[in-house]
Design a protein around this nucleic acid. Sequence first.
RNA 1: GGCCUGUUGGUCAAGCGGUUAAGACACGGCCCUUUCACGGCUGUAACGGGGGUUCGAUUCCCCCACAGGUCACCA
Length: 481
Amino acid sequence: MEIRTRFAPSPTGYMHIGNLRTALYEYLIAKSKGGKFILRIEDTDQGRMVLGSVDVIYKTLKTTGLKHDEGPDIGGDYGPYVQSQRMGIYMEYALKLVESGKAYYCFCTKERLESLKEKNDEGLEFSRYDRHCLSLSKDEIEENLKAGLPFVIRQKMPTEGKTTFNDMVYGDITVENSELDDQILIKSDGFPTYNFANVVDDHLMNITHVVRGSEYLSSTPKYNLLYDAFGWTAPEYVHLPPVMRDAQHKLSKRHGDKSFEDLIEDGYIPEAIINYIALLGWSPEDNQEIFTLDELTKSFKLSGLSKSPSIFDIKKLAWMNSEYFKNMDEEKFFTIAKDKLAASINNPLIDLKKVSELLKTRLETLNQIPELVDLFDELPEYENELYEHKKMKTNLENSLDSLVSCLPVLESLKSWDIASIHDAIMALIEEKGIKNGQMLWPIRTALSGKPSSPGGAFELAEILGKEETIKLIKKGIKKLN
RNA sequence: GGCCUGUUGGUCAAGCGGUUAAGACACGGCCCUUUCACGGCUGUAACGGGGGUUCGAUUCCCCCACAGGUCACCA
């Protein structure tokens, strides 16, 4: 049987990292077995709708490569793929349940429901519906309906026995039916609840594997009872542990945690983000860490999914991001770094391509570019102490000597490329009988004005150009005098 | 509070009765080296606690502790 999974986000306006990981696993579960990955928009909570947020979802799936096979934008055989466009369906199915006695009308007011609530020791409220409306006669219901009283439809839960379901990551889970509340299927605004819409849609769309966060674990028995009530076969369940900010808190946008868009904004690349979150809760059979989406698809196995929550570690993402930069070819890296580079360097004489090559192995995020390349625009202010380097065996005196003696060599150079500069300076070093560092550290310092720079003396000199290099060496000499 | 679930180094994690308890990130050291970075080598660091079962438990069972989830006309 063909595997069909669905990503069913609510349009909230941004892509939560946890949701993205869920989408990724849904994609992988389907694609690793040649199945279909479906997008369904769950907008049954009208109060939470955010305009334009569906576009965020499309855009994210596109940039991450999680290509869906069916969805609102591309259609499919099981549409419509937006819940608000499926309204008639839910009521129709709810009524079927009412007819068969598996569900019932409830006219209870908010106030009455409120009075049913109990408080625990910490003052937290919880309640259980007392089935007040279950005993309503046909006539009473008819009368209420005719009078236009607002109503909901509730599922009638069994009061005895147990329900067991199997989860592919958590195994068998059993609960007492008496724990289950008569949950609402249709709300008084006529919209279905998430729980109900899900079951109906998943069945109608032939979803074989329901993948979602572990917070749904405890309501899954209700789902299964619903499938039973309809006489449908329940899907396979794959519940996922949460992605955490720290040991006790889930990642949350509200508490300042980054969404996918935020991470992109911060200079992380989609491939690295996907790769990183794939490994947050899943591990391959070997020790591979760097994966393309295709490679993930090939390696993915449900058995590699973890049961326990994992903390999102931005440091490891940063490392992974840098791995992607290092493994990229020069051209590709340049295309993604170009804009930031151009925005950071105003000097038109600087060859951005060459700078980009230097940066490739020294970068964790794109946003580090400005601070790394500022020296190409203008020499930062620096103290003379910078010339003193123990390991290079340099001090103020020999630094000055090195700068003075390299000046004529550089000035007389005819071709200004890294090889020529290298050969000329190395010849000078040999002639003077000094250590490489004694010459190169002062030059690098004079050219960069910083304790570290993207590239050494030769690279900097080449990129800065002959004129600027000589100017900066002279400036260094002046400072040291 | 009831119910459900989880607990291997600081973090991600492998492990599925017998291992010197992998690997990666981070951190420290060394090497390479014209700085930084890259690369290479290397070090510190873990099975929540208590009972069982067993010749033998990180692995199986029970209890406890801690953490999370859930108990909505939110998803």
